[in-house]
Amino acid sequence: MSFQKRTLLKVILLGDSGYVHMKFSQQYKATIGADFVTKELQIDDRNVTLQIWDTAGQERFQSLGVAFYRGADCCVLVYDVNVSKSFDNLDNWHEEFLKQVIIMLIWFPIFISCQANPTDPRTFPFILLGNKIDLDGGNSRAVSEKKAKDWCVSKENMPYFETSAKEDINVDAAFHCISKNALENEREQDIYFQGIPDVVTQTEQKSGCAC
C-alpha cells in the first residue's frame, strides 16, 4: 500500500441534531442517515482528501451507526457552545461510537490479532469542536471553554477547538489537526484497518435460480 493511495481519510462527524450543522455543503434540509462531503487538505507535503460523513443527530438514526462508522480513521465530536444539553450528550456519542467500533471487531476478529486495538480510547483519534461561537456575539454561551477542556482532558487529552462553521472560524485548523493525528495513528498502527471485509461474503449466493 503506497502512501499516495492512503491519503484518503474517512471522518465521522457526530453530535446532537438541530444544534450542530457543519454546513460545508448548502444542505438546508434535515440530515437523514448521513450527508457526505469531501474536503481537500495539505498536510506536510501530502494531499489529503477527507471523506466526511456528517451523521444525523436524531437519536432514532443512531442504530445506523455501524454502516457509517465502518472503516473510520477518525471521529469529530461536535457540540453547540450555546446549548448545554448538546455538551451533556457528548459522553453518549463518544461511548456509542466506541461501542460500534467494538461490535465491528467482534464481527471481524481477525483484526484484533493483526493490529493494535483501535478501540483503545488512547489511540483512536478523536477531536472535539465547540461550534457556533459566533451566535449572538458569544453572549448566549452556555458551556464555558474551561468545562469543555476539562472534559477533553478526561478523555485522553482529546484536542479541542472552538469553531464557527458559519463564519468559517477555526474549522480548517481543526480538520488539519484531526487529519494529522489520524495519519500518525495510521503510521503507528497498521494499514489493515481500511480493508474490513464485507459481511456479504458470509451469505454468498448460490448460482442458478429455482423459481
Binding site: G33, R70, D198
Partner: peptide, 18 residues
C-alpha cells in the same frame, strides 16, 4: 458497489425514510 465498499444503507436509507 460491493467492491467499492459502498453499503446500500449508506444511500438507500434516505430513499426509504423519505
Amino acid at each position: 458497489v460491493e467492491d467499492q465498499g459502498l453499503e446500500f444503507l449508506q444511500f438507500a436509507f434516505r430513499w426509504f425514510n423519505c
